[in-house]
Amino acid sequence: MQTELSSAALAVEGNRFDDAASEQMECIIADLGRMYRERNEALREVERAHHDALLRLSLAADFRDDDTGVHIMRIAFLAEALALRLGEPARFARMLRKAAPMHDIGKIGVPDDVLKKPGGYTVAERAVMNQHPEMGAKILGKSRIPLFQLAAEVAMTHHERWDGGGYPKGLSGAEIPLSGRIVAVVDFFDALTMDRCYRKAFDDEVALQMLLEQRGVAFDPRVVDVFVEHLAEMVAIRDRINQQRPSFESLVDPT
């Protein structure tokens, strides 16, 4: 009975709530709005903190792999630029920028005597090394947050090959997620054009030739074509990052 009375009191003639009820409802909605915004901000903060921790772990993996951490920054911005040039939505490209630097996080689980071994691997060592995509995907976990789902996908698939000869699953062609195909190309080019302990960097022209040789073999031909078409832009991004050394925060920030 009471409910009926109060709803009757609310439904005043002329399509108006009574003033007190209306003001009270507005207060409740305003509070709800504040809580909604605070909740969203808290969720973003959790995501940022999680991202930051995982990026630092990726940085640790990169340090072990005898680098300064700049490689993963270059991969981030090159993957974003290439995704945009491939016509992917800005939202995807931005998320790939944040996810791509974590692609080799699984190398943290590869023993030093394998990771740092100069020269070729034995079959057993190769098998150990080839576990790093799956270890990476495990470290990144089965998150509900899209960014970490994408990061795990990239970690898992960046060593698959277009012709099906890659690892860990031997996926081929479009079975390989686009994220993995993009990161595979920028990682290949960037790794060739940086100094390693066992060799000097290749010239861009040599690296370009090596990339083209793998067009439709290791790599998605369309991704290679777009990379080559925009080579000047890619090289400019690489050089800018080498000079400016953008901070970690530029990856983590919510934009």
Partner: peptide, 16 residues
Amino acid sequence: DDHADIRRLIRMTLEF
């Protein structure tokens, strides 16, 4: 909506 208060509540919600 023909109901002014409902419009107002919806507006306040959308302004989240």
